[in-house]
């Protein structure tokens, strides 16, 4: 019997070894370890054995069983692994095929520029103010020291609706409105972005509609050096820390002194090139100390309060930053233009 069991074991192990798939292995299990299998049969025939032999054979039978069972288990694990590998092999795909596109839109370039400017000034404690695009002559001109008949009104020919109403020619009326709102004594620190309109024929450098961002600071003891400090900080963050600024005299009716701010040319670093027309500098914004008449009209005592204001054109900034050659691109909304600046 002992021999029979050992024979069975080696036979079974040989079969396990030969089993090529899980089904064959299952057959081996049923054949050798099943209730009707040869080992069970051997155990059943133990009754015929002597008392001494019985435990020896019993133990051997169990050992054989276990050996076969272990072998099957091991083989099964191996076969399963192989099957899975094969399945995964079959599931393989061409990873170089394009993915399912995700539709992504983006902001208009002017919005990106304006929001960048907003965020820079918010960081310096500025509020963002807005105002109407259809303005009264008072806020658009008179409150800004441009009485009727003032020659500087020629500088910005306007779209009038009635004698008293017009499309604002700059966002400065928002400054006047804000000062009124602050009641002649609260400090002001704000910027006002928005659309403005002028009587210009649309061409590469003119647009009857464009955007502006203007800013205003009013408080006791505001100095011209503050203007220089704030705008220098802005310019370096907006255009790069390696850029220098310079102020030079200019004229705006609502500021005195008035200046224009240039930044050093990015292309030539200040040596002079075609972009900066050989000067090494590029004009970027207008600014100045708020004119006493403007403060007074808004209810601030010019002897106690002073302030500075500035204004810039996002179109111009975008054109300089990206080398865009035609202002009309901003308003024709060519998808190929818009998509270029989604990462901007």
């Amino acid at each position: 019997m002992k021999d029979r069991l050992q024979e069975l074991q080696s036979e079974a192990l040989e079969k396990v070894k030969q089993a090529e798939d899980l089904k064959a292995l299952q057959d081996v299990r049923v054949a050798y370890l099943g209730k009707k299998g040869p080992i069970t049969e051997v155990l059943r025939g133990m009754g015929k054995l002597s008392k001494e032999e019985r435990p020896v054979i019993g133990q051997l039978a169990n050992e054989v069983r276990e050996t076969i069972s272990d072998a099957i288990q091991k083989k099964q694990g191996k076969l399963e692994e192989e099957a899975l590998e094969q399945q995964l092999e079959e599931e393989s795909i061409d990873v170089t095929l394009p993915g399912r596109p995700v539709q992504v839109g983006g902001p208009h370039l002017l919005t990106s520029i304006i929001e960048e400017i907003e965020d820079l000034f918010i960081g310096m404690g500025f509020e963002i103010k807005e105002g109407p695009e259809v303005e009264t002559d008072y806020y658009n001109f008179e409150a800004l020291n441009l009485p009727k008949g003032h020659p500087a009104r020629d500088m910005q020919d306007s779209f009038y609706i009635t004698e008293e109403l017009l499309l604002r020619t700059h966002t400065s009326p928002v400054q006047a409105r804000t000062m009124k709102q602050k009641d002649g004594h609260e400090p002001v620190r704000m910027i006002c972005p928005g659309k403005v309109y002028r009587r210009d024929t649309d061409d590469a450098t003119h647009s009857h509609q464009f955007t502006q961002v203007e800013g205003l600071v009013v408080d006791e003891n505001i100095k011209m050096s503050d203007l220089k400090g704030v705008l220098n900080g802005f310019a370096k963050q907006m255009f790069g820390s390696e850029r220098d600024i310079r102020l030079r005299p200019s004229f705006f009716p609502f500021t005195e002194p008035s200046v224009e701010m240039d930044i050093s040319c990015k292309v030539c670093g200040g040596d002079g090139c075609s972009v900066c027309k050989g000067t090494g500098w590029i004009e970027i914004l207008g600014a100045g100390m708020v004119h006493p008449n403007v403060l007074e009209m808004a209810g601030y005592d010019p002897n106690l309060y002073s302030g500075f204001a500035f204004g810039m054109g996002p179109e111009r900034i975008a054109m300089l930053k990206y080398g865009i050659d035609d202002i009309r691109h901003f308003y024709t909304n060519d998808i190929r233009f818009l998509k270029q600046y989604h990462k901007a």
Binding site: P107, H108, I335
Partner: peptide, 9 residues
């Protein structure tokens, strides 16, 4: 969606 800016007039 892509943002546009068109004319008010």
């Amino acid at each position: 969606l892509d943002e546009t800016i068109t004319y008010s007039l």
